[in-house]
Structure formats: C-alpha cells, structure tokens
Measured scan of single mutants.
Amino acid sequence: IGSLMYASIFGNVSAIIQRLYSGTARYHTQMLRVREFIRFHQIPNPLRQRLEEYFQHAWSYTNGIDMNAVLKGFPECLQADICLHLNRSLLQHCKPFRGATKGCLRALAMKFKTTHAPPGDTLVHAGDLLTALYFISRGSIEILRGDVVVAILGKNDIFGEPLNLYARPGKSNGDVRALTYCDLHKIHRDDLLEVLDMYPEFSDHFWSSLEITFNLRDTNMIPGSPGSTELEGGFSRQRKRKLSFRRRTDKDTEQPGEVSALGPGRAGAGPSSRGRPGGPWGESPSSGPSSPESSEDEGPGRSSSPLRLVPFSSPRPPGEPPGGEPLMEDCEKSSDTCNPLSGAFSGVSNIFSFWGDSRGRQYQELPRCPAPTPSLLNIPLSSPGRRPRGDVESRLDALQRQLNRLETRLSADMATVLQLLQRQMTLVPPAYSAVTTPGPGPTSTSPLLPVSPLPTLTLDSLSQVSQFMACEELPPGAPELPQEGPTRRLSLPGQLGALTSQPLHRHGSDPG
C-alpha cells in the first residue's frame, strides 16, 4: 500500500511539474524568437521594450494561443456562430445594431475584428487614413492633437468618421493612444458598406441611429477645401490634362476667341504652333527640309505637354522668318557652300510665315494684346468667377478644330508651292551661260556676264508674291485673308516669265 501511494503521488507530481515546464519551455522559446528578432533588426531601446511588454501581456492574456488560427480551423457556418458569440456584447448593447435580422448580425459579426491594445500603444496616428470604424468594449483611450489631450473615450464609445457622408476615406486629425488595456472591435469601411448593401432595409436605420462619439476626420483635408492638395495627390493619381488660365478682364471677355491653345513656353509662336517648341509643326519652317525628324516628334510632343491658354504674339512682318533660324542665316552668309535649293526654301518659309499670320487673323479676328503681368498667370479653374468647365471645354474643342483646319490648309498650300517650284525647275534647270562666239564683223562684242542661278530668282519672285499679296490685293481696312490656291498659281508664272525669257546656255562643266 505504501509503495502504491508513493507511486501515485510521485507520478502525479511529476506530471504536474512536467506540464509546468512544458508551458515555461514554450514561453521561453517564443521569447527567444522575439529577442532574436530584436537583435537581428537592431531595434532601439524604447521600441524594444514595448515589443517585450506586449509579448508578455499577450502570452498571459491568451496563454500563447493564436485565436485567429484556431477560429480559421472551423467551417464557415461554425465561424459565424463563434463570431456572433464573441461580439454578442457589442451587437446587443450598441444602439445602431438593434433591430437587425439574424442574418445581418451574422454577416456583421464575420466582418468585425477584435484588437487588444496595451497602455501607451498608439492605435491611430495623425494623418493616417481612416479605413475603419472603432467600437470600444473595454478600457479607455485618449485622443491628442500635438501634445494636447482633446478627448478621453471609454466603454461603448465610437470613434472614426461617418462613412455615409464621404465617398473616400479621410485623414485623422489626431493621435489615438490607449490609456489602459483596451479591447476594441473594428470593422473596415469596405466590409461595412458591403453588408449594408446586402441589407438595404437595415442601412437607413443604421446610419440614422449611429452616433460617433469623436469624429477623427480632418475637415481641412476634404477635397475642394484650401488644404486638400495632399489628399488630392493621394487619391487622384490618374489626373486628366491640367489647364491653367490667364485672368480675363471685362474688356477681354467681350471679345470671342481671344486665346489660343499652345504648349508651355510657346507664347511667341504662331497660331498653328503645336507639339515641339520653336515654330509651326514643332520646328522652324525654314529647317523643315533639312530635319525630317521633326514630323516624327510632333505626335509625342503634342500628347505629353499640358495645355496652356495664352494670348497671341505680336504680328510678324511678311518677309521675316518666324524666328530662331540660325540654319538659314548661316546659309545666307556662306552662300557659296550651301545647297542652291536652300534659297528657294527660304522664300517658301517667308510665304508660310505670311500665310500663317494672315490665317491666324482670319480665324481669330481680334487685335493683338500685350501679355498680362506675371502675377495674373496660372489662375486655377476652381477659383470664384471662372467660367463653367463645359464652356471652357467647348472653347478648347473649337480652337482645336480651327487649328486642324489651319494645319490642313497650310499643308495644301505648301504642296502647291512645291509643285510650282518643281515645275519651274523642270522647265528651266539651273545653269550658267557659256561665252558666246564673236560675230564675223570687226565690231565684236565682249563675252556675256554669267546669269544668276535660278534659286536666287525664285527667292526674289516669291518675296514679290508675298509683298504683292500682303499690300496690293487686300483693300484698305479689310481683314488680311489668305489668297486662294488658283490665284497664287496664276501669279507665280507671271512673275517668273520675264526672268526666264532670256536664252540660257548650259555650261560645259555643268553635270545637269
């Protein structure tokens, strides 16, 4: 009997000691992992102490058991019943959930998450997105703005933001810190809205009876308010094209079509300037034949640059190039080494500058006005007194259609001029006259002087055409309008007829 009692007592005591040691061994194993994590990542002392304290409290609170892992091991129907039991206190005593059906309560219970916070733990920081609604079931918390405590909340209090009033989550206007050990039930806004969409009859009752104890939403960050730039940057990543407008005076608003859609830094370009900076079609017209890549860069430059609305530039004389043409100036200075066709295309550029300027006046029909002061630039669209967005969009579309028509007509005119030049060069190729044979009589004449090349004649003739079109064909006081194609086609051969009437002889060394 004594040996039996000794064996039973010894066996029970050893089993008890073994169970104690097993729990202690698990605790030390998990604690060792936490300390190894702290050492590996070199976490500083204040945060390291918070980690160790939280682990110790969580171990004593749950005995080292992962409740979520245990809950996920059950089937979904059983999980709903378990969640309904775990959140029964909240669902029974909170006013917004009263009167809900059994199915609605089960769906809500599945969406709730339980959070346990030790003292000093910050649940929400200032500036964080308010993605959830919090219900306090135990403990107390404090809300701070800077170093000032603005509120202390306790059991059955609710904090967050009214989700039904805002389409997008706002930002917190303060820090939420736990004063004691707290148990909180939180539900994400997407989950709550999903359940309320499934039960629309409960939705009206819920929003009407929901009383948020403390609204954390920062009202200064609401979209459309003066301080909402940061919020707009976070939620409006896919922005449309940006529009900046110059201020319109009362006198300017009476004149229709007073602005032109141009790229940034293009205030001095012609009315047909689009795409790359520098001139019509993204580059100076005089350098068009020598740089074919300008047409390839036109599309990307047009689509990537934001639109700006600026006044037209001052008018340019008909014979003056659009500006920024070092290529043609070098050719004029060193005409001995340049291609003979460069002079002809220089005359073509003069005609283009004249036609572009006159067509700009035809479509816009307003006098040039000086540029406004820099303080009046970049007025935002949302400022008071601005035109409605639809009106601005319609004006932009009208300007775009005008620019497209202008570009089409300029292309047709350019093709006409090039065809005339090619026809003239085919009839009378460039050549130098040879020395004529002296006559049989004693009164022999001296050799004839060489005839100037055709490109120079073409430049003079085209300059005469531009001056003739600019000065004589337009009646005084009438708006400057571009001439039609047949009129220009008839004027060019008439001007060139006198020049080509002389018999030109080919030089023996000319390969053409």
Rank of each mutant, 00 (worst) to 15 (best):
P380G: 11
C369L: 08
D128K: 03
A412D: 12
Q364I: 05
L377I: 08
P479S: 08
V451C: 06
G508T: 09
P440F: 15
P372T: 09
H205Y: 09
R266Y: 11
T408F: 03
T456N: 12
A412C: 05
M221D: 10
P169Y: 03
Q255S: 13
P453G: 10
T436W: 09
P311D: 12
S461P: 07
P479R: 08
L427A: 11
L196N: 01
H188P: 06
V259T: 10
L231K: 13
D252K: 08
G356W: 04
H205F: 07
R237E: 11
C369I: 09
Q402Y: 09
P453C: 08
A412E: 15
D252R: 08
S334M: 09
P384E: 04
H507M: 09
K240R: 10
N173R: 10
P169I: 09
Y166C: 04
S411D: 03
R361W: 14
G263P: 08
L165M: 10
S203H: 12
T426W: 14
Q467G: 12
F312D: 14
G508N: 11
S208V: 06
E211A: 09
P388L: 08
G263W: 09
F354G: 10
H205R: 10
E201L: 03
R409D: 05
S382T: 08
R168T: 14
S203G: 12
G227M: 10
S228A: 12
R302P: 13
F202L: 06
E332Q: 15
Q495E: 05
P223N: 09
A478F: 13
S446M: 12
Y134L: 03
G227D: 10
G441D: 11
G282A: 11
G174L: 08
W207R: 06
A398K: 12
Y363N: 08
P311E: 08
L210Y: 03
R423K: 06
L366N: 13
L381D: 11
P479K: 15
L130K: 01
S140T: 10
T436I: 12
P374T: 08
S272K: 04
S463Y: 09
S334G: 12
K171L: 10
P442A: 09
P315D: 14
R506D: 08
H507F: 06
L341Y: 08
R189I: 14
P256Y: 15
A267S: 10
K333N: 12
E161Y: 03
L399V: 08
L309R: 08
K242C: 10
I158N: 06
L133I: 06
D157W: 01
R266D: 14
R302Q: 15
L193S: 06
L418W: 01
R189A: 08
L454Q: 07
G477E: 09
S304A: 12
L366P: 08
V149Q: 07
G160Y: 02
S353T: 14
G139F: 03
L165V: 06
L327M: 01
R177E: 01
S203P: 01
P438M: 11
R405G: 08
G477D: 08
S358D: 08
L427P: 04
N339F: 15
P476S: 11
L165K: 14
R359T: 12
Q424K: 08
Q483A: 10
E258W: 10
L381N: 15
G508A: 09
T408W: 05
Q502E: 14
Y134C: 10
I158E: 03
T416V: 09
P315K: 04
G512I: 14
P271S: 14
I222G: 12
G512A: 12
G288S: 14
T416R: 13
S342A: 13
E407A: 06
A344Y: 09
S272G: 12
A344Q: 12
Q467L: 08
D413I: 15
L457G: 10
Y181P: 07
G497V: 10
T213R: 03
S411L: 07
R506T: 07
P289Q: 12
Q362S: 12
M425G: 09
V195Y: 01
K333M: 10
A151S: 06
P438C: 13
G146H: 06
V465W: 13
D191V: 03
T249H: 09
E254L: 09
S349P: 07
P447F: 08
D252E: 08
F468L: 09
R241W: 10
V259Q: 09
G146D: 14
G494H: 11
G299F: 04
K240E: 11
K186Q: 13
S137A: 08
Y166N: 10
D197V: 07
T426D: 05
V149L: 06
L210A: 07
D250N: 04
N339R: 12
G160N: 01
L163M: 10
A151K: 08
T131Y: 13
P322W: 12
L427D: 03
L130C: 06
R177T: 06
S349C: 06
R246C: 13
I222W: 13
T180W: 01
G227T: 11
S313Y: 11
S501A: 08
R189G: 03
S433E: 06
L459N: 04
V451I: 07
M425P: 10
E325Y: 08
L193A: 08
R177G: 02
G282H: 15
V176H: 01
H185I: 09
L474R: 05
F245K: 10
I143L: 01
G234S: 09
L377S: 13
Q238M: 14
I187K: 01
V428D: 05
G233K: 09
E194R: 07
S236P: 10
P380F: 03
D204S: 11
M469R: 13
D397E: 10
Q502M: 13
S342V: 08
R308F: 05
R316T: 12
C338P: 10
D147T: 11
P482V: 09
S334V: 10
P289G: 13
S303P: 06
P340G: 07
S284L: 05
E332N: 09
P223S: 09
E201T: 06
S383P: 01
L454T: 07
Q495F: 15
M414G: 04
V176D: 02
E325H: 07
S260I: 08
L216V: 02
Q502V: 09
S305K: 12
R387M: 12
S349Q: 12
I152N: 06
I222V: 14
S461Q: 10
E230D: 07
N404Y: 08
A470C: 14
A167N: 04
L418T: 05
S452W: 14
S466W: 04
T458A: 09
S303A: 09
L309H: 05
Q402H: 05
P162L: 02
L504A: 10
L179G: 06
R386E: 04
R401I: 15
L192K: 01
P453F: 11
L376M: 09
S411A: 09
L474Y: 15
L165T: 13
L449Y: 14
T180D: 04
R395P: 12
S433P: 06
K240W: 06
S260W: 10
A431I: 12
T458I: 10
S509R: 08
R248F: 10
E325Q: 07
F345N: 10
V150R: 03
S444V: 06
K171T: 10
F206A: 01
G234M: 10
G347C: 03
R246D: 15
P430H: 11
T456L: 11
T337S: 10
R405W: 05
L231S: 11
L492Q: 09
